[in-house]
Amino acid sequence: MIGTTKKPLEEIFQAVDGYAKIAVVGCDGCAKVCMTGGLDQVHELAAQLKEQGKEITLEVSPERTCNIMHARNFLTPVKDQIAAADAVIVLGCGGAVQITRQTTEELGLTIPVKVGLDSVGHMDMVIPGVMAMEQCQECGQCILNETGGICPVTKCAKSLLNGPCGGSENGKCEVDPNRDCAWVLIYNRMAALGELERLQRYMAPKDYSKMSKPRVLYIKEGRCA
């Protein structure tokens, strides 16, 4: 899931300043789960924009707006309502915004597409409806087989591969005393599994070329470049 948080309303109002008619597009995928961009939040923002004197031409929330197929299927039938707007605002991740822009371009519309959320990372829901946590950086070179299924690249503030730094204390991270030290978690997990000897292996520096942006996934070929 892509985690999102709402931008401050003032920032949204500033983004749509000068546009009288607005189409509001949400996302019934990740943003719905984050309670930032489902249909409820679309209606909420639309009401707030109306209070600012804006005219709302569209309130929709496609299922996974980041998927061009869903975006096309959902937005093509409402092309006229999009065309009637001066700007589109998307309550979705940065991907949803850009797929919405692509869809409007495919529909032959040249219209500003704005973002109402901040994307804050690849998040895993650890407490349903309450807390999601970043646990994977999509580094393209997964080492979870070596670390007991706990990712130091993401869960260690310094992304250390060969053990903890000197700042770890009482099992907590120097950056945030409420955050577990990833390497103590890994050590305890490996000890429980009886695989501590695996931690003695030298882990070479990561190949960050596998994270060079923008990456493209060729699905049929099963490769990322």
Partner: peptide, 27 residues
Amino acid sequence: LTGDHIKIGDHKSAKPVFDIDSVQMLK
């Protein structure tokens, strides 16, 4: 050394590098 994290310093909004770790640096 690994180095103290950016967040405890005086330029908290800087991008931490940590491209390699202290073991890798020694090697």
